[in-house]
């Protein structure tokens, strides 16, 4: 017990110990920000992997670690598409994942946002052209926000989520 308390005291607060994000390659559009308004300042996310190499998933997972602690901004990861406000889609959409992706989109209640995370989701990346790939994501479902990078750093994902919440913050002032 004392060992645990000692460890926690010695560690202190690590939240926020990360380098600042670089400027976004593509700013979040006004439409997307307006679309995010009904969610106020909380945003519940469902992540859908449609054939990524797992690096994007690792960075999404990193958002939940104590350093980024995305929950302090009201961002939560939902276990079901029915509980979600925003779908985060990674990967180039393989032929085998095309159906599940469309199903998930249908199962998500309106209003909803779709965020294409990573180069593969945006333009299929190194997998472009393959017989097994039918993407990019916007070929199958409407995409509102794009986060480029292979993979995008957690700080860059965080900056986009911040921008999406900005509309709600403005209207509350």
């Amino acid at each position: 017990m004392f060992r645990i308390i000692k460890k926690s005291l010695a560690t202190g607060v690590v939240t926020g110990q990360f380098p600042a994000a670089k400027a976004l390659s593509e700013p979040v559009s006004r439409e997307a920000i307006d679309k995010a308004k009904p969610f106020r300042r909380s945003l519940t996310i469902r992540e859908v992997d449609t054939g990524s190499c797992n690096a994007c998933e690792m960075e999404m997972n990193a958002l939940a670690n104590p350093v980024y602690d995305v929950e302090r901004f009201g961002v939560e990861i939902a276990a079901s598409p029915r509980h979600t406000d925003a779908l985060v889609v990674t990967g180039p959409v393989t032929v085998n994942m095309e159906r599940p992706l469309k199903d998930v989109y249908k199962q998500t209640a309106d209003p909803k946002l779709v965020i294409a995370l990573g180069d593969c989701a945006i333009h299929c990346g190194v997998f472009k052209g393959s017989y097994a790939v039918t993407g990019p994501v916007e070929r199958h479902i409407p995409v509102d926000v794009r986060i480029a990078g292979c993979p995008p750093r957690p700080t860059e994902i965080l900056a986009v989520l911040e921008a999406l919440r900005s509309a709600a913050t403005e209207s509350e002032k």
Binding site: S52, P92, T94, V95, M97, F127, S130, Y131, A132, V133
Partner: peptide
Amino acid sequence: HFWKHRGVEKLFEQ
């Protein structure tokens, strides 16, 4: 499995 089959080995051949 193989939901995520992206055709990597064929892509190498290109």
